[in-house]
Write a protein that binds this DNA or RNA. Structure first.
Length: 751
DNA sequence: GAGTTTGAAACT
DNA sequence: CAGTTTCAAACTC
């Protein structure tokens, strides 16, 4: 049914839109492209290698609608998903009121509802949402196509009737990640848009100039039919489905955030979404159960906040913490909501609208100047919003207004919050609400006043040893416009909690921030990329030298420690919880996670991490096993956490690396498409994998390549023709990497 | 909380 | 590219 509906939508879109290459359109509808990919060695390799399935799987996911938390996290991290294109820079929601309202502990749950910002819901919002849902698959697929078949993406100028911008479509296909942002910008400019202020510098930031976002979507939609064809094949893998579902959600969120094409929306689409939601939630639980950590029951695992924390820390991007705030809030809010549990109308357009509005509101706040909304580009928030549309919808409908999430939450708090999703899952079973819903709510809804909530306690427990509040930057001379500033480095605006002086890293100085960011990127294209990447344990084919090192994850550039012996957080490797690698220039390396000479086995690090987790569990009284399980399973995919329970600040950044790891390892079956491309990479849809690719992931060809050496121009090399192409395995690995590129938003305008 | 240490980032 | 300086986090007291 969904497929049919979706297909119908696609067909409509196609019919309305004229393609220069009709054949292509047909192919898309007939799934010929998919088969083509399947036939390719890379595809086969990927399929055999890991749970990650070909693009077609995405379709399935959409249909089946399974949700994977892990995937969600990953997704969230990506800037694209945020689609908060405006500045591309993550903005924190700075609400003085909120901070005031907050308890000393900064628990958002207690945040005063009054602090909420009301979001205006556009009339056609529902339509937009539905559209987004329908296009999710398509987008993901397109994204992959961009990598696989960059040349074939050209679209003829579309017919005006379709209201689709051919150019937009084309570009979208190539740069899916970027799509969201441009869309937002466009929408903002459009009448009745909710984000008038979101994109100040559209010229620089926006890749697409199309006046109508919907057009772009249509372009994507045209291909959707083909995408659907592959669904049947991939249905078999539940894991894959989960991944796909996560991806889809992410995409949906992105699109929603960006403002789906109102024209596209229709009731059928809304239905589709609903189904997907349910399926996803159900499957999520299943997926959790499937985690390798045996022994524990799913619920326990889901419940365990620690597990989530670890997961987040590992997978979350540097931007993550902002997102976490939202999620947490959402969770609490969820509880507070009277009907949230029963919200059945995921399909309800309003629900979608609400989520969208939330995002929008947050964005507006940002633009407003001091709003510190944590909406991170591409961060899971959006995704969560979609997923949690039900609850969210209910909540919003009750109040009729949306409250923005406060970013004032401490980073520490955020981490635990991030855990919420899993807990939510469990709750989902119990109450019927998905954790995603919670997350979504977090974004939009105010904190739950209930101080007694288990989650809150959990968080406190976890963070007991940590600082009371989120440690933000404390820059004094850098004006928060240099990489010294963690906020800036993470691609987020400084917020109230920051103790920075003369801070320019605020929405009001967006231009300055962007300009500075561009400058830095020009100097080092990967300056904002994840610093830590996880070596693909499962993907031995890659055969990277880094694999020789004990730790599964590695710092991209390696550390240069001289006195800390890589045993303190001064060491980025240690801070990220990864072992040193051959790339490190450290002296007397004693990194517990693995020395550069490989003296420390990975197992040791893992054991430590597990021990820590166990301790945490014991303290919290939560399912001790759950955390371990989850983290353990996750650890395989992600970088292990540092000895201290407290996630390293940099860890957030490193989490991005975790994203890489996921993609690279594919253990989670996360499709490549799950990770939106980093804006940096947006320019070159097919940037040279080697340049951007983490060393670990790279072939042995360039183990020690210095990031700085990479030239932006080199990025544009198309993968298929590279030297590495000769090896199917290499090719496949490259693809994964490309798609898994870090999500930090690139300020550099694409051309 | 102030001061020190450390290593990344930035600069020359 | 190497050396130096600047910077802010991490750490110590």
């Amino acid at each position: 049914m969904k497929c049919g509906m979706l297909k119908g939508t696609c067909e409509r879109a196609s019919s309305s839109m004229e393609m220069e290459t009709p054949d292509r359109t047909k192919a898309a509808s007939s799934s010929a492209p998919i088969s083509k990919f399947e036939d390719s060695p890379v595809f086969n390799y990927i399929n055999n290698l890991s749970p990650i399935k070909p693009v077609k799987s995405i379709h399935i996911a959409q249909t089946l609608g399974s949700l994977s938390f892990a995937s969600l996290h990953t997704i969230f991290t990506s800037p694209q998903s945020s689609s908060l294109k405006e500045s591309r820079f993550h903005r924190r929601y700075q609400n003085l009121d909120l901070s005031k309202l907050k308890s000393p502990s900064r628990d958002f749950e207690r945040e005063n509802p009054n602090g909420r910002a009301e979001a205006v819901i556009p009339e056609n919002f529902g339509a937009r949402i539905s559209i987004a849902s329908t296009t999710v698959e398509q987008l993901s697929e397109h994204n992959e196509f961009a990598f696989e078949l960059p040349h074939t993406l050209d679209y003829g100028s579309g017919s005006p009737d379709s209201s689709t911008n051919q150019d937009m479509s084309h570009q979208r296909v190539q740069n899916f990640d970027q799509q969201a942002e441009p869309d937002l910008g466009n929408r903002q400019t459009g009448p009745g848009r909710e984000w008038p202020n979101l994109v100040p510098d559209t010229a620089d930031l926006l890749i697409f100039s199309s006046p109508n976002d919907g057009e772009a979507f249509q372009g994507i939609i045209q291909r959707s039919p083909g995408l659907e064809t592959g669904l049947d094949a991939s249905i078999s893998s539940s894991l894959l489905q989960n991944n796909v579902a996560g991806l889809q959600k992410m995409q949906l969120l992105s699109q929603v955030a960006s403002g789906c094409n109102p024209e596209m929306g229709d009731a059928s689409e809304g239905i589709e979404i609903k189904h997907t939601e349910e399926d996803l939630r159900r499957q999520d639980l299943e997926t959790m159960g499937s985690f390798p950590c045996g022994g524990l029951n799913n619920e326990a695992e889901l419940y365990d906040p620690f597990a989530e924390i670890k997961t987040l820390s590992n997978f979350q991007l540097g931007m993550r913490r902002r997102c976490l705030d939202f999620e947490m809030v959402g969770a609490h809010y969820h509880k507070s909501l009277p009907d949230s549990s029963n919200a059945s109308s995921l399909s309800h357009p309003e629900g979608m609208i609400a989520s969208t509005n939330l995002m929008l509101t947050s964005v507006n706040n940002k633009r407003g100047g001091e709003s510190s909304m944590c909406i991170l580009p591409g961060i899971g928030l959006h995704l969560n919003s979609l997923a949690s549309t039900k609850n969210y919808y209910n909540a919003t409908t009750h109040d009729g207004s949306f409250s923005e999430t406060r970013s004032a939450m401490s980073c520490k708090e955020l981490l635990p919050q991030s855990v919420i999703p899993n807990a939510s899952d469990k709750e989902a079973d119990e109450s019927g609400n998905g954790f995603l819903e919670d997350n979504l709510l977090a974004l939009v809804l105010p904190e739950e006043p209930n101080p007694n909530s288990p989650r809150k306690k959990r968080r406190k427990t976890e963070h007991a040893g940590e600082d009371d509040g989120c440690k933000r930057c404390n820059c004094k001379k850098s004006k928060c416009l240099k990489l010294y500033c963690e906020c800036f480095a993470a691609g987020v605006y400084c917020v109230e909690p920051c103790a920075c002086q003369g801070c320019f890293n605020k929405p009001i100085h967006e231009d300055t921030v962007l300009a500075t960011r561009r400058q830095i990127e020009s100097r080092n294209p990967l300056a904002f990329a994840p610093k830590v990447i996880r070596a693909p344990d499962s993907v031995t084919e890659i055969g990277d030298e880094s694999m020789k090192t004990p730790a599964s994850a590695r710092h991209k550039r390696g550390c240069n420690c001289k006195k800390s012996s890589c045993l303190k957080k001064y060491c980025e490797c240690y801070q990220a919880g990864v072992g040193c690698s051959i790339n490190c220039q450290c002296e007397g390396c004693k990194n517990k996670f693995g020395t550069k000479d490989g003296s420390v086995p990975v197992a040791a690090a893992d054991c430590e991490a597990e021990d820590e987790e166990a301790e945490k569990c014991a303290k919290t009284g939560l399912h001790s096993t759950t955390p371990s399980r989850l983290s353990r399973s996750l650890s395989q995919m992600a970088v292990p956490l540092p000895p201290k329970s407290k996630p390293p600040r940099s860890a957030f950044l490193t989490t991005v690396g975790g994203t890489y790891a996921l993609n690279a390892t594919q253990k989670q079956g996360k499709a490549e498409f799950l990770l939106p491309l980093s804006p940096k990479f947006e320019k070159p849809p097919l940037f040279n994998a080697e340049d951007e690719m983490p060393e670990i992931l790279r072939g042995s060809t360039t183990p020690n390549a210095d990031i700085k050496t990479a030239s932006p121009n080199r990025k544009r090399v198309s993968p298929p023709h590279g030297e590495l192409d000769s090896s199917p395995s290499l090719r496949s690995s490259r693809r994964l990497i490309l798609q898994s590129i870090p999500s930090f938003p690139s300020l550099t305008p694409q051309h």
